[in-house]
Design a protein around this nucleic acid. Structure first.
Lengths: 346, 346
DNA sequence: CTGTTAGCGCATTCAC
DNA sequence: GTGAATGCGCTAACAG
């Protein structure tokens, strides 16, 4: 573990100046005679030269890494977004600094600060705290931000959003089309825009069909853990089933996301209620696991991987001076029809 | 987006030298009078000073970030490890540079190089290519490595390993204990140590019980995609069911990991074969999703989150000069009994 | 085409 | 206690 060799070392070895070495080794367009170039390249190779990017970065004020902040990587919804981001980052020779915020605004704040101090100037974020105030000072100092999944009100940032409301409508209308009249909506706390939008879409579709909505919502303040969504789906289903007079039991349950839908199906199966024969279930997300359970989950598909790719692409455009800093991309929902919904039996 | 302010700026503002500012702002133990300290702190705050870690890192040759390379973050097995790593990293004020290798040795190589160039000196890796040769030159130059999940033969690196063989035995013996005699083992290519070990454990347990093993292995060279494991589980099950005379059909299937087991269950269900009544299934991993499917998957539990934590802890010990660079930690398997296994009906 | 010089922002000798 | 000077490794003017 001897002292790492620098361009000066190889400059000495080659009897040239370190400037020339730099020009060659950094692929500068600056002209250097072929002879010297070859010689330097050869010597660098022999000496096993490895450039120190810190020096380069400090000098050039560029930094080929982008930060990414999501609630938790364990949720496939987010890991899929991250994969998309990383895929595009790789293509452009960037690397990814990953942060899990656990929906904790304090942590979020700390990470943003740390990222910025490391001179990272690109950030993809799925923020829950939704405080654009948090980001603003950094943006003013040159941080480029693309918000994904969660809409962030703010002028100077890119957004890859999703038509959640339309998704809520789509799923609900689909169920109505299959003959369902009593459709429950089961949801985690309506404390963020995306959830409120899905809920609104559900309400709208129910309203236009003259049906009365039935919403079961978890109370706020539940601490965030890896399997919260799943447990919540189970709990809410229990509540739904027990609170209603049996004549009023819904024939279909629409869940705010796939993980919750898994919990719903689990609770149903546990009680001997067959899906979809006795109860239809629709989720929201379209994560891969939906196809692995029995029955495969019918759901509203969100192109997470694509969202990650787009967000990263947008970000890199900004970082490299192309593209406007306030681009808004809104992706449209699609219904992913699998096998968890049946026509209602009259 | 004006020029960022540096310690020199605030030195000027406070009428002191930048050295003094540095001492105060970097929490140096070096003595500075209380009066100056307060003044500098105040001015720095007013000016919204944000330190540039690049400068600091270049000078101090420290770098509070650790790299992590895994095949793919989309597999909950790995995302859970990462979460563990990140959790401990956060506790020690480190950040995490994430890389997905997609089991591609070339990519792996590229990432290691990039990480090293960024002066990152700590790496947690779940390498598939298993070439310790790849790592050696970097280790010699000061990279600290902890291998997780996949054993890497090499002297100068930490390892958090798992008793795969014992896990294979455990699952197989469990099935035998429940009365099964024809137990098939369904696996992705036996091209890495962990898989070979599980397989060996299976063979051993079958042998000692005087039973004949029945192994279905996928051919090598399949390209890696997110749902490979699942698809493979389906395909291998189909092969298993079709190749055997019906009298020889196994009563239980042991899969090399949970995702594969999901595929197995899926294929079974598709064919109207009920789990566990007509066929028992055991997985390997213990990922969260196992409890969300129907029936909940009985499996060999691997404490992935804990593995991530331990790996990171080990790494940080090394980075900070404590702890030996060749520590080996071997975690023991446990059987996670859920509902996908039934006693065999004679 | 090549070399000299001067920093990027910071921490750290060494004088005082 | 404090400041002046130096350099981490690299690139980018500016001369030649």
């Amino acid at each position: 573990m001897d002292k790492p060799i620098t361009i000066h070392d190889i400059a000495r070895l080659a009897n040239v100046s370190s400037a020339t070495v730099s020009r060659v080794l950094s692929n500068s367009s600056y002209p250097v005679s072929a002879a010297l170039r070859d010689k330097i390249l050869r010597i660098a190779k022999e000496a096993n030269y490895i450039p120190n990017q810190l020096g380069k970065q400090l000098k050039t004020r560029t930094n080929r890494t982008i930060g990414i902040i999501v609630p938790t990587i364990t949720n496939q919804f987010y890991s899929s977004i991250i994969l998309g981001v990383e895929e595009l980052a790789r293509k452009h020779e960037y690397q990814v600094l990953l942060c899990n915020s656990f929906q904790d605004p304090a942590l979020e704040r700390k990470y943003i600060q740390a990222i910025f101090e490391k001179q990272v100037r690109g950030l993809v974020i799925s923020s829950i705290s939704g405080e654009k105030e948090l980001l603003r000072p950094y943006i003013e100092r040159g941080l480029h931000v693309v918000a994904v999944d969660q809409r962030l009100e703010g002028e100077r940032l890119g957004q890859v959003d999703f038509e959640y409301r339309q998704g809520g409508r789509l799923a609900t209308r689909y169920l109505i089309g299959r003959g369902h009249r009593r459709i429950a909506y089961v949801t985690a706390p309506l404390d963020r825009p995306s959830r409120r939008s899905i809920h609104a879409g559900y309400m709208e579709a129910m309203g236009e069909a003259g049906l009365s909505p039935q919403v079961v919502e978890d109370g706020p303040g539940t601490s965030y853990s890896g399997s919260y969504e799943f447990e919540n789906g189970k709990a809410l289903t229990a509540r739904l089933l027990e609170s209603e007079p049996s004549g009023e039991t819904p024939t279909a349950i629409f869940a705010c996301n796939d993980m919750t839908a898994f919990g719903v199906i689990h609770a149903l199966t546990e009680r001997g209620i067959r899906v979809p024969d006795e109860m239809s279930v629709v989720g929201f997300d379209g994560i891969d696991f939906g196809q692995m359970i029995t029955p495969p989950l019918t759901t509203v598909y969100q192109p997470t991987h694509e969202m990650g790719r787009l967000a990263c692409s947008m970000l890199i455009e900004q970082l490299e001076g192309r593209g406007r800093p306030d681009q808004l991309l809104v992706l449209q929902p699609e219904l992913l029809e699998r096998s968890s919904v049946a026509d209602v039996r009259e």
